[in-house]
């Protein structure tokens, strides 16, 4: 995880993710593969279960957005597909290296989920740097909690569902 004390990182080789009209950034190292949504129908994770699909726009903004691409995030036990509108490799020239500023500690501690790790200013517009691995793990936890609730098992407080607040 990126800490506030960590030095600013360069935005080269980052993924630019669009959720509707908004654009986010993410480390390409968090993404195992990028696929069109149509291919997810017949895909299974390592456990042979159907691929867990999460609409990232609903998760972050609670607003629907068109989804065409799936970002496959590999966790320790499973692979999660985050559905986004579009994704591209933000391949900037080598002489231009915008710097992603980490979130200040006050803000970082105020967040319920550590899904946003920094801010990048590009063309006067702030772009949030997403922690896709954390988002995938939280989504898996939330899905497992839902399954347990459906089966009538007590809820483990340590595994509370993911929420912005």
């Amino acid at each position: 995880m990126i800490s506030a004390t960590e030095p600013p990182i360069l935005a080269n080789h980052m993924l630019r993710i669009r959720l509707g009209a908004q654009t986010f950034l993410a480390h390409h190292t968090h993404v195992a593969q990028v696929l069109p949504i149509a291919r997810l129908r017949d895909m299974h994770d390592e456990r042979g279960q159907p691929m867990q699909q999460i609409r990232l726009a609903e998760l972050l903004q609670h607003t629907p957005a068109p989804a065409h691409h799936a970002l496959l995030i590999a966790t320790r036990r499973r692979t999660v597909a985050l559905l986004v509108t579009a994704v591209d490799l933000w391949d900037l020239p080598s002489d231009i290296s915008p710097v992603v500023q980490p979130l200040p500690p006050v803000l970082r501690h105020a967040l319920t989920h550590a899904w946003i790790t920094g801010i990048l200013i590009a063309d006067g517009q702030p772009l949030q740097l997403l922690n896709l691995r954390q988002i995938a793990q939280d989504a898996l936890k939330q899905a497992a909690q839902g399954e347990r609730e459906q089966r009538g098992q007590p809820i483990n407080r340590s595994d509370e569902p993911v929420s912005r607040n």
Binding site: H13, L15, H28, Q33, V34, L89, D91
Partner: peptide, 17 residues
Amino acid sequence: SDETHLLALNAAIEAAG
């Protein structure tokens, strides 16, 4: 083209890795 784009994107991700 979209497939190619995604393929190139995955290739770039792999290359960056």
